[in-house]
């Protein structure tokens, strides 16, 4: 195992994140604060409670998920896309590092970055709303698994993308709508029955639901399903990456 390689890629990626600290940290804090002001204070004051918690508190897990999913995908996808685009990928391909080590370096860095952002948003929410986290260890566990699985997904997108447009396409057109429609800002029980059934095909529903359970003890779907959904999604991503590395898809000519 080439641990030096994993560390080198991880350090390189974390340095890149630190270089763009303003964009990485300040931007999610600002957007979350705006969400709290608009949804929590303005609109939330007209809504009594959802599943027994105030609306402002109810949206916290969804807001964290929204940022964490988008950040995991974009950090990991850009991480591997950048050397592909600049040509510096030659170094990764000619290094004595296996694809597992290369993936680990990029994915761990992207996951760390989004985990930190998730925790910062959680910290910010404490400034606006009183929240008690019922199952803190499950909350951290869900958060970490989500960061990792979506960083894996982002890594696949980064290898697949041939240009910047394709790189933006998936986060913009797939991830964000899935998060918004995945019960981030509402309980899916608020939807008409047909839409409740359709929503169950959205994997993000399971993430948000499980995460919200860790906070408030109430969930749209059972926690077991949520854990299975995240684990399943991670396994699918790992299988795709294994295939990419075996075939050299869009990496090795």
């Amino acid at each position: 195992m080439n641990l030096h390689a994993i560390r080198a890629i991880y350090t390189f990626e974390m340095n890149r994140a630190l270089r763009t600290l303003l964009q990485s940290v300040v931007s999610p804090i600002l957007s979350t604060s705006l969400y709290f002001v608009v949804f929590g204070a303005a609109i939330g004051s007209r809504i009594e409670t959802v599943e027994g918690v105030s609306y402002g508190a109810f949206i916290v897990p969804g807001l964290i998920m929204l940022s964490v999913l988008v950040q995991s995908v974009s950090a990991a996808s850009f991480g591997i896309f950048a050397p592909k685009y600049s040509g510096a990928i030659y170094e990764l391909l000619s290094a004595p590092a296996s694809f597992i080590e290369v993936t680990a370096g990029y994915v761990l860095a992207a996951a760390t970055r989004s985990l930190v952002i998730g925790l910062i948003i959680l910290g910010t929410s404490f400034l606006f709303i009183d929240i008690t986290i019922l199952h803190p260890f499950w909350m951290i566990g869900f958060l970490m698994l989500t960061c990792l699985s979506f960083a894996l997904f982002g890594f696949i997108i980064g290898i697949w993308a041939r240009n910047f447009e394709q790189l933006q396409l998936v986060p913009m057109l797939i991830v964000t709508p899935l998060v918004f429609l995945g019960g981030s800002f509402y309980s899916i029980t608020m939807l008409p029955p047909v839409w409740q059934t359709i929503t169950l095909f959205n994997p993000v529903v399971y993430l948000v639901s499980g995460f919200r359970w860790a906070f408030f003890g109430a969930a749209d779907v059972s926690v077991g399903w949520s854990v299975l959904a995240i684990a399943g999604f991670t396994l699918v991503c790992l299988a795709v990456i294994a295939w990419i590395f075996r075939t050299g898809y869009r990496l090795r000519k």
């Binding site: 080439n2 030096h4 390689a5 560390r7 080198a8 890629i9 350090t11 390189f12 170094e91 990764l92 290094a95 004595p96 590092a97």
Partner: peptide, 9 residues
Amino acid sequence: RFTRGLFGF
């Protein structure tokens, strides 16, 4: 430093 690490040193 990145290259050196990548090559396992």
